[in-house]
Amino acid sequence: MVAQFKTIYGEAVLTTGLTNLEHSAAEAYMKEIYGLVKKEIQVVVALELIKDRSISTTLIYKVYHNENRDRLYTVMYDRNDKNIKCECKRWNSEEIPCRHMFCVMKQEGYKEIPEKLILKR
């Protein structure tokens, strides 16, 4: 109940360079979850993105951290249904979008987090 009160009446302080995505996260998630999502958004500045290939309407990206080019994460983005899937599986385990997904959202010019990536309370 306290978390919901803070979510409804508190205002998030936007600190990342991806203001639209961060604002969207602040509106969609409760404060505690928003804090986790915000950390994922903040890491995007340290990530590099390579467009690997496209298969029909699906774009396949490789994402890696500037300091660790040995570990590449594959992210698939479907242009038609705006579906984003990452091989790190953070979405499957914690049910929040991962930094790799946010990197693709940044590349594709998203202004808000897709509804498919926001679980209903």
Rank of each mutant, 00 (worst) to 15 (best):
V75W: 01
Q4V: 15
R69S: 07
I113R: 00
P97S: 07
I84H: 07
E27N: 14
K51T: 13
T7W: 15
K89L: 10
K31S: 14
E87K: 15
C88N: 10
A12I: 05
T15P: 00
N80A: 12
L49V: 14
E11L: 07
F102D: 05
H100E: 04
V104K: 02
A25H: 05
G10T: 01
D81Y: 13
R99W: 04
Y73F: 12
S24Y: 00
T57Q: 02
D52P: 04
C98S: 05
L59N: 10
S24G: 00
D70M: 04
L36I: 02
L59D: 09
I55C: 11
R121M: 03
V13W: 10
K106Y: 12
K111Q: 11
I50R: 13
R90W: 05
D81I: 07
N68E: 02
D81R: 11
M30R: 15
E32A: 15
Y61A: 12
W91F: 13
I55D: 12
F5Y: 13
L36A: 06
Y29F: 15
V104I: 15
I60T: 04
I41R: 01
N83H: 10
M1W: 08
K39F: 01
P97W: 00
R53P: 00
K62Y: 09
H23V: 13
F5D: 03
E32H: 14
T7Y: 13
V45H: 10
V2H: 10
T16R: 03
L14H: 10
Y110D: 05
L21P: 09
K111N: 12
K31Y: 09
E11F: 11
Y34G: 04
I8A: 13
K120T: 02
Y61I: 14
E11V: 11
R121H: 03
E22S: 01
S24W: 02
L21E: 06
T58H: 11
L36C: 04
Q42R: 09
L59Y: 10
Q42L: 15
V2F: 12
N83F: 07
L117M: 14
M101G: 00
C86H: 07
C88H: 07
C86M: 04
E95K: 06
A12R: 09
K111T: 12
R79G: 13
V104W: 02
K39T: 04
L49I: 15
H100R: 07
E27Q: 11
I50H: 14
H100L: 09
N83E: 04
L49S: 06
V104E: 01
L117E: 00
Q107M: 06
C98F: 06
A26M: 02
Y64L: 04
R90V: 08
M1G: 08
Y29V: 00
